[in-house]
Design a protein around this nucleic acid. Structure first.
Lengths: 351, 351
DNA sequence: CCTTTTCTTGGAAGGCCTGCCAAGGATCTC
DNA sequence: GAGATCCTTGGCAGGCCTTCCAAGAAAAGG
């Protein structure tokens, strides 16, 4: 009936204090790296800690300090972004350095339940900060309420372009511009574009970059070549089929993320179109998928781990009440040329 | 200087008790669903809780009960298994139902540091249970020590076949048998096999199933057709090249996971071999990657979410001191036929 | 009807740490 | 050299919940 115990049957702060011949409070100061402790006293305490193998009890610390030392990662359960594991890496690395743990909180979208569970997590003091992944980084009434209630939060690739909390994003527009310029340099003039979800601001930024590159190259923008996807493989497949079944065929398709690009490659495969000889296909994100496709996907790399690390840093600063240096982090993307795009050829044009 | 606060500025158990006209202890009983509370009293308490919007403070509960209500997921940081997000889903669902939160703990393998951080997590009472993903589910001295120290733990797809703690695995042998039988039914007789990491027991079980199917079909097992990979895409690519560059060509290649199968497909692509017309390629796991490849991969599905859910259930039972019903969970796999394997043809044989 | 068991509640005593305040000593200032 | 200022340490009072124990009420048993 009694629950089993583990750990902290060992030393407590009291034991360390006794061993070092100081007060609990002084030990506490040493542990937390506070000022006003003599080098000598600190030394004694450190020694005692080492000898006893003392590790502070998190629960007690949390209760006393009214902090949880927990950061919560909120993302979509069913369709997590392909870069989730990278994001986690960045967050955990940084969190660990500051003594924070990371709790994961996969949510159902549009779900009352997930709001309730998040609300509960927050009100019971279960977390010190929230990191929101798309599509949660938006100005919903719920988020607004959390923010105004003083909950530190941060977003990676937010849905809304301007949020009052720290935000980390990439140069979506420039990335799309670079990719489009690259395709143009290969001679492509009819380039299909598959848009991301309408409610992500990044989707529009990518479209924007695409348009800008066309304009700069004085290539006419054709509305018929732009179709709407939602960053899923399935939408890429469907829209790929649509683009390749239309009257005027594109010689290249720029899917605005890798998942959709994989869908396009599959659509091409179904139709017996060889990539890149007969159709160039490019993506965006440089997710794990990209180099596993055949042909390996030419795409835009985003420095996800570092992005996550930076935003975590900013969040922790905010938790500590420090004025965050950068409340809007923007990291630059880079073009990764692999094999899925090639110079436009006759066969491509004549199809 | 003072850290910001959020939440639990609201009601405490004391407030609820006052409002309901009972003692704190009685409220506690209601919250924890203990016996010996009248329906009527419980009702009063419930009402008070609802009206005050009371949520118990986790830190206090943790300190008092000497439990953390946290489960920790341990996995490899650099090369997380492709089914990680599914595992997380299963774990979180089940944990949430039991009031547990899930902390992620990506580790470096072979790293003193990760052991230290895990040890710290454990001794300071930061977690009630560990869920180990490969390659951590093994009989290392460190794990043994944790286990003997009374730390509840569980493994998914363990490296060692017999562990003293609960283990969840799939029918690796049967799955590989089924796949091989399927390939044989398509007429393949020279089937290449790419093995997983040597120190995973699952790798050998899969090889075992492969051999058994050959034997049952009275097809000679050729050692030269078995090569060693390590479940990474890169190893699949390398070994795919090796198999396809050898003197006697296989008509099909069975990569023992999807990542490696993707590598083989890429190797075939490089050589201009059409899959499945000239070479059949199959995988194992039915990871997200499988249906995104072109052609979509024929593979073996493992019910990852449910597997994770079941093992989490078992772990929580153990934490609660209940004798776990099943200490070894084995779930059955199923063949998923897509397009990457086809009947063996002349072209394949004559290559 | 009284004793024994079962149910239902309450009270006190912590869990281990940190925040706040105070106090003594050292250092500085003019 | 006396007062002001800083540094360094300690003590106490919680934080909010649970565990343990006790006690009264109700039910059961003889």
């Amino acid at each position: 009936m009694t629950p089993p115990r583990f750990g902290n049957n060992g030393a407590t702060i009291q034991d360390v204090a006794a061993k070092a011949g100081v007060s609990k409070k002084t030990v506490s100061r040493v542990i937390n790296g506070e000022d006003y402790v003599t080098e000598q006293t600190a030394q004694k305490v450190e020694t005692a800690i080492a000898e006893l193998g003392y590790v502070p009890n998190v629960s007690a610390r949390r209760l006393a300090s009214n902090r949880s030392y927990v950061l919560t990662l909120v993302y979509q359960a069913e369709e997590p972004p392909g870069w989730l594991t990278h994001v986690i890496q960045g967050i955990v690395q940084t969190s660990a350095r500051h003594g924070y743990e990371v709790v994961i909180h996969p949510c159902e979208v549009e779900e009352q339940a997930s709001q309730k569970s998040l609300q509960a997590l927050v009100t019971r003091g279960g977390t010190d900060g929230l990191i929101l992944l798309p599509p949660f980084g938006s100005k919903t009434a719920f988020n607004q309420r959390l923010f105004e209630g003083g909950m530190p939060m941060a977003s990676i690739e937010p849905s809304d372009p301007d949020l009052p909390w720290p935000v980390a994003t990439i140069t979506n527009r420039q990335g799309a511009y670079d990719m489009t310029a690259y395709l143009l340099s290969l001679g492509h003039r009819r380039i299909g574009f598959i848009l991301g979800p309408e409610d992500y601001s990044g989707s529009w930024e990518r479209l924007d970059g695409f348009k800008a590159a066309l304009e700069d190259a004085e290539v006419a923008f054709e509305k018929a070549l732009v179709v709407a996807g939602d960053y899923t493989f399935e939408s890429g497949l469907a829209q790929g089929r649509a683009l390749l079944g239309a009257a005027i065929l594109p010689t290249a398709i720029f899917a605005s993320n890798d998942e959709m690009a994989a869908g396009v490659i599959q659509a091409a495969y179904e139709l017996g179109l060889r990539v890149p000889d007969e159709l160039s296909v490019v993506g965006f994100d440089d997710s794990a998928l990209a180099c596993r496709l055949s042909p390996p996907l030419t795409t835009i790399r985003q420095p996800t781990i570092e992005l996550a690390a930076r935003v975590t840093e900013a969040l922790i600063q905010r938790i500590n009440g420090e004025e965050a240096e950068d409340t809007r982090i923007e990291m630059t993307t880079s073009l990764v040329v692999r094999d899925s795009a090639a110079t436009v050829t006759d066969s491509g044009l004549s199809m």
